Computed example of a mutant assay.
Amino acid sequence: MTRLLRSALVIARRDFAATVLSKAFIFFLLGPVFPLLLGGVFGGIGAQVASQTEQPVVAVISSQTDFQRYSASRDRLANALHDDSIVRLVHYDPAADVASQQKQLLTSRKPPIRAVLTGGLANPHLTGSVGEDNAVAQLELILTDARNPASQATDISVTDTKTATGAAAKDQAFTGQIGQMLLFFLTILLSGMVMSQLIEEKSNKIIEVIAAAVPIDALFIGKLFAMLAASIVGIVVWISAGALLIQMISSGGVRSLPAPAVGWPGFLALGVAYFAMYYLLLGAAFLTIGAQASTAREVQTLSMPVTFAQVLIFGFAATTVGRPDSAEAIAATIFPLSSPMAMLARAAQEPAWWPHIAAIVWQGIWVAVILRIGSRLFRKTVLKSGPRAKWWKLRRA
């Protein structure tokens, strides 16, 4: 056992130094920046396009006096709700032939008019395609307010306590959801490193030289923990840079984010612990897959079912957000591959610590079991990196 641990430490130190001290590790740390920038740019463009195309435009054919009352009512409604979700009103003076004017407006593209409101305040009539949204209900509210302009909104005295249970539960559920997504995507992204490194060493026959000097189990465990340590270094850098960025662009800094129930220090510590457990569980599976394959194409073919299965497991764990004591949440906590994600969401919503201690012990047992199974499969297949014999030749022999 002592020789196994010592050999695993040697392999882990070798792979960790080769990964972290290489020039490529700098580009590895910069890797998430480009998807975030592209996601922000295209997300902003998509939101702007959606805002411009989804906001209904209603042409109002009326006198200037009636339209001013319409517009004032619309502005009051927009102040209470999000402005992009309120219909946009465009004024047109009545023409000699209102029916022809209405038909012409409905075929106009600049602006793209959804409906035409005629009749003024006395006898309003709406014509157009408004059956699939709430534009009619909004116009009814606007019309009701426009007909009674003397009625003023009542001022309500407000005392902001910042400790309402409903608001805190909603914010903490959002924090748990974000934590689950980060845990899932970081683990999926980083666990593939062990496969690529293993395939490279198998193709260069380096792994056979190493296997002659150390036990195969130590090689398996050392590689897995080396990539775990390199991934944690990357995560620490990303979290520090993200916290600094939030502190710079936000007046409240990190404190302005929804605080988890266990507090930010405890939540971040549990996040690292659950990432380590999730990475060891999933990384052992990927490392075992890498031992079965001889080429990068075979790795992609074999790892695809595991990746899709993890997406389904992530969806199962995501259903527990907001319901930490439900039957689904308990089942997701017991199942080892969804337990880290379910428990991280629980840390954002429940302040108790004993479930996390029990969950980490439970996950540690499964890590030991999967490492044992994976190391046995790894031992059987890692040295079989040469060309495979044809099945008919094996039968003839």
Rank of each mutant, 00 (worst) to 15 (best):
M1R: 10
T2A: 15
V10P: 11
I11P: 03
A12D: 06
A17L: 14
T19S: 10
V20E: 01
L21M: 14
K23A: 14
A24K: 07
A24S: 12
I26S: 05
I26V: 10
F27C: 07
F28W: 12
L30Q: 11
V33Q: 07
L37C: 11
V41H: 05
V41I: 13
A47S: 06
A47I: 03
V49M: 12
A50Q: 03
A50H: 03
S51Y: 01
S51F: 00
S51H: 02
P56M: 07
V58Q: 01
S63R: 03
S63V: 00
T65K: 08
R69P: 00
Y70E: 05
N79L: 07
D83E: 02
D84Y: 00
L89S: 01
H91W: 06
P94C: 04
K103L: 12
S108Y: 09
S108D: 14
P111C: 05
P111T: 00
R114N: 14
R114F: 08
V116N: 01
V116Y: 04
L117P: 02
L117A: 03
G120M: 09
G120C: 07
L121A: 13
H125Q: 15
H125G: 07
E132M: 09
N134T: 03
A135G: 04
A137L: 12
L141H: 09
I142E: 05
T144D: 10
R147P: 01
T154V: 13
V158I: 07
V158Q: 09
K162M: 03
A164M: 07
D171Y: 03
Q172M: 02
Q172D: 00
L186C: 05
L186A: 10
I188A: 02
L189F: 11
L190P: 00
S191H: 01
G192H: 06
G192N: 04
V194H: 02
V194I: 10
M195Q: 05
M195G: 14
Q197Y: 06
Q197W: 10
L198M: 12
E200A: 08
K202L: 11
I206S: 10
E208F: 08
A211L: 08
A213G: 11
A213Q: 12
P215K: 05
A218K: 00
A218N: 01
L224D: 04
L228Q: 06
A229H: 02
A229Y: 02
I235Q: 09
A243Y: 07
I246T: 07
I249Q: 14
S250Q: 12
S251A: 15
V254D: 15
A261L: 09
V262I: 15
V262S: 15
W264S: 12
F267H: 13
G271T: 08
G271C: 11
V272L: 15
V272N: 11
F275S: 12
Y278F: 14
L280I: 08
L280K: 11
G290Y: 03
Q292R: 05
A293K: 00
R297K: 08
L302I: 00
M304V: 05
P305S: 02
V311Q: 12
L312W: 06
F314L: 10
G322I: 04
P324R: 01
P324E: 14
A327T: 05
A327R: 08
E328R: 08
L337M: 15
S339Q: 12
S339I: 09
M341I: 15
M343E: 13
A345T: 04
I357N: 13
A359C: 14
V361F: 13
Q363A: 13
A368L: 13
V369W: 08
I370P: 01
L371T: 02
G374V: 00
S375G: 13
K380C: 11
G386R: 10
K390W: 08
K393D: 14
R395P: 08
